[in-house]
Design a protein around this nucleic acid. Structure first.
Length: 236
DNA sequence: GGTGATTTCCCGTATGTGCG
DNA sequence: CGCACATACGGGAAATCACC
């Protein structure tokens, strides 16, 4: 069976901000559909493509699977008083949770950026086709993710389709670090992760994520020691 | 369960844009 | 202009939902 792709349209930051803001006020799905569709009219002409984009937005923020609802609600709560950069962290995390394709693309980008400063769309396209098969859809969707990331200010495009990381975003708030680490554990499917490996996780490459043990204390995460000075973080 | 409607996902193609 | 690539469009299949 072919792996689902899903994320096949460019999604802009203000569209994500819009839905994250409106979810608070509007609880009815139909009303929110209506509202988002109206908002999308400014960006996308065709009704069908608007529906496609709406599908993606809803999957990220609204139609969240049960096991992620709690994280979603916490994100929404913090979202209200977050800075622009912090809001991006939430969009990023929710996208990772909603779309394995997004997560895999981010991860591959992260790997490539560990090795080099510039990544071409062709290069990442090849990697993703390796994971998802030789399908045109994969090509289109990789471009959709890349151009979304450009519009989010995560990537910049240089000459000849090379992409570079725009300035990395430093995450300062301990609450948000904790949230992202939780997301990280879920999407990477790891039981535990070593504390000082967190910053190097490929799928969070746009962020500077340095965490101290003290910042992760609380009800959600569990910290254990392994050997000398190795701190492991896992979900409780 | 069946079945019709809606949602989600995928595809081929048209159009636009930048570049040699 | 011709080429490559990005983006949007609409058809349609597959999956899921809602209701009987």
């Amino acid at each position: 069976m072919k792996k689902a792709v899903g994320f096949d349209q460019k999604i802009q930051l203000h569209q994500l901000d819009f839905i994250a803001n409106e979810i608070h006020r509007i609880s009815s799905r139909d009303a929110l559909y209506q509202l988002v569709d109206e908002r999308l009219m400014a960006d996308i002409g065709g009704a069908k493509s608007r529906v496609n984009a709406r599908t993606i937005l809803f999957k990220i923020w609204f139609l969240v699977s049960d096991e992620h609802i709690e994280l979603r609600d916490r994100a929404l709560d913090m979202f209200q008083r977050a800075t622009t950069e912090e809001k991006l962290v939430f969009h990023w995390g929710m996208s990772l949770l909603a779309y394995p394709f997004f997560k895999d693309t981010a991860e591959q980008l992260g790997y490539l950026f560990h090795l080099q400063d510039e990544v071409t769309s062709e290069q990442i396209g090849r990697k993703m086709k390796g994971l998802y098969g030789e399908r045109r859809r994969v090509e289109v969707s990789v471009n959709a993710v890349l151009s979304s990331l450009r519009s989010w200010g995560v990537l910049e495009m240089g000459k000849r389709n090379t992409h570079t990381i725009a300035a990395k975003i430093d995450i300062l708030s301990a609450e948000i670090k904790k949230w992202l680490v939780q997301v990280l554990l879920i999407v990477t499917d790891k039981a535990v992760i070593e504390l000082n490996h967190i910053a190097g996780e490929p799928c969070v490459f746009p962020f500077k994520l340095s965490v101290l043990e003290s910042e992760l204390l609380g009800n959600e995460l569990e910290i254990t020691r392994q050997g000398v000075g190795r701190l492991m973080v896992g979900l409780k």
